[in-house]
Structure formats: structure tokens, C-alpha cells
Computed example of a mutant assay.
Amino acid sequence: MKKILVVIAMLFNILIFGQEKSGAKQFWENLQKQCGKSFIGEVKEGAANETFRDKKLVMHVRNCDKKTIRIPFFVGNDKSRTWVLTYKNDRIQLKHDHRHEDGSEDKVTQYGGTTTNSGSSMLQFFPADQETRNLIPNAAANVWWITLDETSFTYNLRRIGSDRLFSVKFDITKGVPTPSAPCGWKD
């Protein structure tokens, strides 16, 4: 009975709104609901990495507009990283914006990729793009993915053909105080 009601609701939405929202659009709207909020994370895979071990990890969904969401990712006192998500033509692009304390771009920045399909409301995959391959040849086999549900946001990286795996999970049920501006931003 429940499945029948779900199908009827989907058909109703299609009749009223013209079509069901794509996975990318649903994911985007769900992520925008977190705008302005900050959360503590925990490394789930790749904990041996000295960059992240024993450091406080905070993400801040700091800036959202219709087409762009910027999420600074702080590792201890290091405020150099921002995940930049862009929504265009029912696809989502992920870029990694790395900056120095003075706001200038790091030499390794703007790498990432774009989804190859609309994905799902809770999962988006980003295979490395040509810009990434040109900038970091070894990263040509990178695949990033983000999962988002009612309780967590998880950022993941896998380098296909290697044992490289990194995953950090943020509990989005418990906000934390908003951190100060990341490198290159003004409060």
C-alpha cells in the first residue's frame, strides 16, 4: 500500500509540475538547506594521513546562491580549503579551491570534476576532469563523491587502481559555532 501511495504522489507531482525533480536537483536543494550551518567531522578512512590526524575538522556551508555553494573545510587551524559546488544543466561540479593566508591561490587548486549524470538525491559522483589531469597527472584516476542524508554529509575520495581512500563524515544533526572566515574571505 505504501509503495502505491508513493507512486501516486510521484505521478501527481509530474502532472502538476511537469516532471519529477532530478536527483541532482533534489541533492542541491537538500544541501542548500544546510547553508549558514557548521558541523564537526571525523575521518572514517585515511586516518593515517598526518594532515588530518588528531585535528579538529569543521565544514561550514558558508555561501549559497542559485548556482553555487561554497563549503570551507577547516583542518585544525588550516583554513586553506574550500569545496565549491556548482549546479548547471542538471549536473553538479565539485572544485577544490586552495588558498594561502593572504587569499592568493595555491599552485594546486581548482581540481575536481563534474557528475556524468544527475545522480541521486543522496549521492553525487565526481570523476576527475581534464583540468585535474593536467594539474595533477596522478589524480587522473580520482573519483570524489558526496553523500547527504538527514543525519550526515560525507566527503570521499578514491584513486582508482590504488589503495588511496579518504572519507570524512560530518554529523549534520549537531551544529557548531560558525568559524571565522577561511583564507581569501572576509567576514
Score class of each variant (00 low, 15 high):
Lys2Tyr: 08
Lys3Phe: 06
Met10Leu: 15
Leu11Gly: 07
Leu15Phe: 14
Gly18Gln: 13
Glu20Ala: 15
Glu20Lys: 15
Ser22Arg: 14
Gln26Gly: 05
Gln26Trp: 05
Lys33Gly: 04
Lys33Thr: 05
Phe39Asp: 04
Lys44His: 02
Gly46Glu: 10
Ala47Pro: 03
Arg53Cys: 07
Asp54Glu: 15
Met59Trp: 04
Cys64Glu: 06
Lys66Met: 03
Lys67Asp: 07
Arg70Met: 06
Ile71Pro: 02
Val75Glu: 12
Val75Trp: 08
Gly76Asn: 12
Asp78Ile: 11
Arg81Asp: 04
Thr82Cys: 08
Thr82Asp: 07
Val84Lys: 14
Leu85Arg: 06
Tyr87Val: 00
Tyr87Thr: 00
Asp90Ser: 11
Gln93Leu: 11
Gln93Phe: 02
Leu94Val: 01
Leu94Ile: 03
His96Ser: 12
His96Trp: 06
His98Thr: 10
His100Thr: 06
His100Lys: 15
Gly103Phe: 12
Ser104Ile: 08
Ser104Glu: 11
Ser104Asn: 14
Glu105Gln: 13
Lys107Cys: 01
Lys107Ser: 10
Val108Gln: 06
Thr109Ile: 03
Thr109Lys: 11
Gln110Ile: 00
Gly119Phe: 05
Pro127Ser: 03
Asp129Met: 01
Arg133Leu: 00
Leu135Lys: 05
Ile136Gln: 01
Ile136Arg: 01
Ile136Asn: 01
Pro137Ala: 04
Ala139Asn: 01
Ala140Trp: 00
Ala141Arg: 02
Val143Trp: 01
Trp144Arg: 13
Trp145Gln: 06
Thr147Val: 09
Leu148Lys: 05
Leu148Tyr: 02
Leu148Trp: 03
Ser152His: 06
Asn156Gly: 02
Gly161Tyr: 05
Ser162Met: 13
Ser167Gln: 09
Val168Ala: 10
Lys169Cys: 08
Lys169Ala: 10
Ile172Tyr: 05
Pro177Thr: 12
Pro179Leu: 13
Pro182His: 09
Pro182Val: 08
Gly184Met: 11
Trp185Asp: 03
Lys186Ser: 14
Asp187Tyr: 11
